[in-house]
Simulated scan of single mutants.
Amino acid sequence: MSATPASLAPAVLHRLVQEGRAPRLLDVRTPGEFRTVHIPGSYNVPLHTLREHRAELLSHLDEEVVLVCRSGQRAREAEQALAQAGLPNLRVLDGGMNAWEAAGAPVERGPERWDMERQVRLVAGSIVLVTGLVGIAVPGAHLVG
């Protein structure tokens, strides 16, 4: 296992796809992220699922594999997990989907979804807003709890 996984530039992967020589693409993002936008022909295997079933995946992944996520971090984690399980020929899409889209490479889009961090911020902000409004309407209400 290498300390730094081999990476593949979006332009190189795009050329391989256009030439019909694309490696197997495993997108390790959540199903919601994958449905929102993904590389055509890629397979969604969320990171937690990949970790749990990596031994089973070995029998299905005998060719070169490129791991994809939003920015590259989760793909590097997936590479480490699969390399520890004995899978060779692994590469990470350099810069992930962010770089793929920035390069103007083709994507398949589904309904737009907010990522989990944005959802949490919305809920937290809403709680602060409601608490503030209740505190104005009912003095001392913010002290109850």
Rank of each mutant, 00 (worst) to 15 (best):
M1T: 14
M1R: 12
S2R: 09
A3Q: 10
T4G: 05
A6N: 10
L8K: 04
P10L: 05
H14K: 09
E19V: 06
G20M: 00
R24D: 07
L25C: 12
L26T: 03
D27S: 05
T30D: 15
H38A: 15
P40I: 04
P40V: 06
S42C: 08
P46N: 02
L47P: 02
R51M: 03
E52D: 08
E52P: 00
R54H: 09
A55T: 08
H60S: 01
L61R: 02
E63D: 12
E63V: 03
V65D: 06
R74S: 13
Q80M: 12
Q80S: 15
A83N: 10
A85P: 08
A85S: 14
G86N: 04
L87W: 14
L90S: 06
D94P: 03
G96M: 04
G96C: 03
N98E: 05
W100V: 00
V107C: 09
V107T: 13
E108I: 05
E108L: 10
R109T: 13
G110K: 02
E112K: 05
R118T: 15
R121E: 14
V123M: 07
V123N: 10
G125M: 11
S126V: 07
V128L: 10
L133Y: 08
V134Q: 08
A137V: 10
V138P: 03
V138E: 12
P139T: 03
G140K: 03
A141V: 09
G145F: 04
